[in-house]
């Protein structure tokens, strides 16, 4: 009798186990499916228009066959470099302030609140703000203003993840550094930030990937440019911008280029994120947590 009870209990337990595992697997599939679908569709639509010229030629006038998006690929590179140079240092510095030096101060609550609100500001509003602050006084569109708009958009994500990651560093690690006679600032830079670096880099990459696909803030800052340009004080092309313009155009040829551009944009994001991960993880040791 008792054995039978045990057996039936065991069967029920197994069944519950399968149910829970099944639910988790199903959830995973639901999460992964849209991403794979997008990738597959992009490759299906865009791969046929990809060729060497796409990466090495600037757009041709309407009606002429061929041409590429070199201007937009280079432009996105320039814009994202400027954005990262602005967004990452400021974001990390603010995160360090929040986690290490400004706990429970009025200013830090203000900074935290501002960062959260900034995170929710629609990107088009960011574009208008930078337009009126930089483009209007300078009286011309520029790569710099576009980079600033994207950089500001990166700040809240970087700040909040930096703060969260620093707070995860155990107090004992900070004490160990202070106990060795390491000055506070040095301990923050070389010990706390270093211990939290993996998480902070993930945060930076998230922010980077997010603004890499932004179109709205660039409409009236970077503006777009049909020629390749590296100048910060000139209008510059960007992949999302170019895709937008080509996708809403009435020409089939441009539609195909827009698909190819989307494919390239996604791949460039994936490649740059993986590259950063690879480079920053090379120094990682066996068993490091």
């Amino acid at each position: 009798m008792q054995q039978r009870i045990q057996q039936s209990g065991q069967a029920w337990r197994r069944w519950k186990n399968h149910l829970a595992t099944g639910t988790a697997v199903l959830g995973t599939l639901v999460v992964v499916a849209p991403l794979l679908a997008i990738f597959a569709y992009l490759i299906y639509k865009g791969a046929s228009s990809l060729n060497w010229a796409f990466f090495t030629k600037v757009p041709k006038p309407v009606g002429e066959i061929g041409g590429g998006m070199e201007n937009a690929i280079v432009g996105s590179g320039v814009l994202l470099t400027v954005a990262s140079l602005i967004g990452i240092p400021i974001g990390i510095a603010a995160g360090v302030y929040l986690a290490e030096f400004g706990r429970k101060r009025l200013l830090s609550n203000l900074v935290r609140f501002t960062a959260d609100v900034l995170n929710g500001v629609p990107s088009i509003v960011m574009g208008i703000a930078v337009y009126s602050l930089i483009v209007v006084p300078q009286q011309h569109f520029s790569a710099f203003s576009g980079g600033v708009a994207l950089g500001i958009m990166m700040i809240p994500t970087v700040t909040r993840t930096t703060e969260e990651m620093l707070l995860l560093v155990p107090h004992a690690v900070r004490e160990a550094a202070l106990g060795l006679g390491v000055p506070n600032w040095r301990s923050t830079v070389s010990i706390t930030l270093r211990t939290a670096s993996a998480g902070i880099i993930t945060g930076c990459m998230l922010a980077f990937a997010r603004v890499a696909g932004e179109t709205a803030p660039l409409l009236f800052t970077a503006f777009g440019n049909d020629d390749k340009s590296l100048a910060l004080n000139q209008p510059i092309a960007a992949l999302p911008l170019q895709i937008f313009v080509y996708a809403v155009s009435p020409y089939n040829d441009w539609h195909r280029l827009a698909w190819a551009g989307s494919l390239v944009l996604i791949f460039l994001i994936v490649i740059s994120v993986s590259l950063v991960r690879y480079v920053t993880s090379r120094g990682v040791l066996k068993g490091a947590s």
């Binding site: 155990p170 004992a172 690690v173 004490e175 160990a176 550094a177 106990g179 010990i191 270093r194 211990t195 670096s197 990682v284 040791l285 490091a288 947590s289």
Partner: peptide, 9 residues
């Protein structure tokens, strides 16, 4: 310290 606290990274 009471608990070993090597720098993990």
């Amino acid at each position: 310290f009471q608990r070993p606290n090597p720098f993990p990274t």
